[in-house]
Design a protein around this nucleic acid. Sequence first.
DNA 1: GTCTATAGTTCGATAGAC
DNA 2: GTCTATCGAACTATAGAC
Lengths: 210, 210
Amino acid sequence: MVSITNAAPRASARTRGNSRGEGTRAKLLDAALQAFASHGFHGTATRDIAAAAHMSPAAVYVHYRTKEDLLFELSLRGHLAAQEVVEAAATSASSPDVQLRAIARDHTTWHARYNTLARVVQYEMAALAPEHAKQVASIRRAIETRVRDIISTGTSSGLFRVPNPSMAALAVLSLGIDVARWYREGRGWSAQDIGDQYAELALRLVGYQN
Amino acid sequence: MVSITNAAPRASARTRGNSRGEGTRAKLLDAALQAFASHGFHGTATRDIAAAAHMSPAAVYVHYRTKEDLLFELSLRGHLAAQEVVEAAATSASSPDVQLRAIARDHTTWHARYNTLARVVQYEMAALAPEHAKQVASIRRAIETRVRDIISTGTSSGLFRVPNPSMAALAVLSLGIDVARWYREGRGWSAQDIGDQYAELALRLVGYQN
DNA sequence: GTCTATAGTTCGATAGAC
DNA sequence: GTCTATCGAACTATAGAC
């Protein structure tokens, strides 16, 4: 099972001792994740989330104030996890070509491996409350800026040949993001295969000569 | 205003003389298009579609049997329009490099220019009735096959260097499709600019040396 | 913290007058 | 073909017992 906890390990450790309460929240998040990914936020009833978590409809509201709160926690965790993946890849090297290869590979692999969470992250932003939408939008901008800066650096040093670093960054991220739209586990290539191949495509995009 | 009629010109000419009846259907389609693109199929009430078309909630059902029928007509028209764009570009030349450049350019430009329709087409497939989903899925497969065959031909002749034509075709289409997710009219580059630049990116993807 | 029961609202779709 | 009025179902969220 694809757990939301696996997708966002930074939220796993807890100071509070009640492990059962946290398990209940995780079960609700998992249920909401699968439902939102399958039918969308507005196409999902809280009753169905509760049923999938083996709880009564009312029990949901002990742990989350509204249905939108469930979406926001999923969206925030997903955005932070994606940012972490990009940040770790960027930090793993200092040369733009190695950095970009790692980013494209890991960003793409993440969107394949966690395609259900990624679809919620990418397609349900309009259902977030305005304040919540602002929060995740700032994470999105940070990711784009990180990739653009690396491409710009590589272009300035002559390592890449890119007419428009902003557009190239957008294109590289688009490649990875759109994988979540069509990838399904167990059909065709593995998430790792796609990540490896897309990394090479990304380097081609920026005119890297290897 | 971005009209659905503009987006799918093949449905404009009519044999029946009642231009007012057709105008009403077009108004409903336009209203549904904007609403579905903004809030999703399940996030849209038929009352809101009716209001945007300056009609009563009941009047919708004179022209469309169900809300899903509205979505299906939008989805079908959108898929057919996208296919037509790809087909026209493919037929416009016989050399794979010219064909692929035209496809990537026009496919991308279409997803930018008609980004509202494209988002409905790409993100609301799960809301279609099973029989309707099958119909549009076959169009999607035809588009993918068309692009893959051109890339395969170019690879066999040594014009392209592609390890995996299927994945390259998916990547080229992904680039265009994902533009609909972030592009908004009047902000940043024009649809044509993006199409032109993405066409060059697509040729880089397939290892074309110009 | 879980449950049953339900309040209060909104939904898709229909009835029937004109 | 349009309207007003409304049906019956489904929805989010809450009340109150245990």
